[in-house]
Computed example of a mutant assay.
Amino acid sequence: MTGTVRVEFNGPVATVVLDNPRRHNAMTKDMWQQLERLLLLLSVDESVKVLVVRGAGANFSAGVDITNLNDILHDPHTGGHDGGNVTAAENALARFQKPTVAAIDGHCIGGGWQIAGACDIRVASDQSTFGITPAKIGIIYPLSGIERLVRLAGPAAAKYLLFSGDFITASEAKSLGLVARVVPRSGFWQEVAEFARRLASRSQLSIQAMKNIVDVIAENDEGLGETHALWQREVTLSGEPEIGVAAFLGKRSPEFKWTGRHSQLFEH
């Protein structure tokens, strides 16, 4: 078995499963390519409101399958050394318009961290372990992964993790800003499922707008004002505030309708 990437649906929540448990969910070239293709399909599926990424079995992912490391990381068509299939899948996940949650249990190592790091929110079990290990095998971590690590943890912590290749605990990862929450393993998967359902119940217009705005701020993009104005215009046209206010006043759960299908933001 070379492993696979599959998807499970539970109402509006799609769970992408990295499935190669005999090798701690190490990602083969086929798996990286499957992940990129699957993300593109889920991005246009209007029934999907929230994306969860997890590993099969006891681990998130041990990273790139080292048996074909060079073939995975380098693009044979361009001769590029920019992370190849890893970077392509990571960028597809980072660009995913809907909210994404990495559910991390067990090992989250190397390229596995690139997948987790590209998600909006990372929730870890208290038995998870993190490590970024290029220095142990004499390679340079893909540029996209280094940039994202520096933005999340800062230069000093990024250097510590990249230079040493040391493994750290979930609590240490939280202290460095790598994960948002650490949950006891005994209730971990129930908590992830409940959290994903909560996100799905919120206004997807609000979430996608704020995700876009936060990303623009984090990337120091000069288009921040224009981006914010476009989303404010979309709010005015959407009817979402009326739904939310009416539900609040009526002491009931709102049923938001916005999908983005007719939005001017998605015409190009």
Score class of each variant (00 low, 15 high):
residue 106 G to N: 07
residue 123 V to W: 06
residue 120 D to N: 12
residue 102 A to C: 10
residue 121 I to Q: 05
residue 122 R to D: 01
residue 99 P to R: 15
residue 117 G to L: 03
residue 104 I to M: 05
residue 125 S to Q: 06
residue 116 A to D: 01
residue 99 P to F: 09
residue 126 D to Q: 04
residue 121 I to W: 06
residue 107 H to F: 09
residue 110 G to K: 02
residue 112 G to R: 13
residue 100 T to F: 06
residue 112 G to Y: 06
residue 102 A to M: 11
residue 124 A to H: 03
residue 102 A to K: 13
residue 101 V to K: 11
residue 108 C to E: 01
residue 106 G to L: 12
residue 115 I to D: 00
residue 120 D to L: 08
residue 122 R to T: 14
residue 118 A to Q: 04
residue 125 S to K: 07
residue 115 I to Y: 01
residue 104 I to N: 02
residue 104 I to V: 15
residue 118 A to F: 05
residue 104 I to Y: 03
residue 129 T to W: 14
residue 121 I to K: 07
residue 104 I to L: 06
residue 129 T to A: 13
residue 107 H to W: 12
residue 120 D to Q: 06
residue 126 D to N: 15
residue 110 G to Q: 00
residue 119 C to V: 11
residue 101 V to W: 04
residue 105 D to T: 14
residue 119 C to L: 08
residue 110 G to L: 03
residue 110 G to W: 04
residue 116 A to V: 11
residue 113 W to V: 14
residue 98 K to N: 11
residue 100 T to A: 07
residue 116 A to E: 01
residue 98 K to V: 09
residue 98 K to P: 10
residue 126 D to F: 06
residue 105 D to K: 15
residue 112 G to F: 07
residue 103 A to S: 15
residue 122 R to Q: 14
residue 105 D to M: 09
residue 104 I to D: 02
residue 99 P to S: 12
residue 100 T to W: 05
residue 98 K to S: 09
residue 115 I to F: 02
residue 122 R to H: 02
residue 128 S to G: 09
residue 106 G to S: 08
residue 120 D to H: 08
residue 118 A to E: 00
residue 99 P to M: 12
residue 106 G to M: 09
residue 102 A to V: 13
residue 112 G to P: 00
residue 101 V to L: 15
residue 109 I to E: 01
residue 112 G to A: 11
residue 104 I to H: 03
residue 100 T to H: 09
residue 119 C to S: 10
residue 100 T to D: 00
residue 121 I to N: 05
residue 100 T to R: 12
residue 108 C to H: 07
residue 108 C to Q: 06
residue 125 S to H: 05
residue 99 P to G: 13
residue 99 P to T: 14
residue 126 D to M: 09
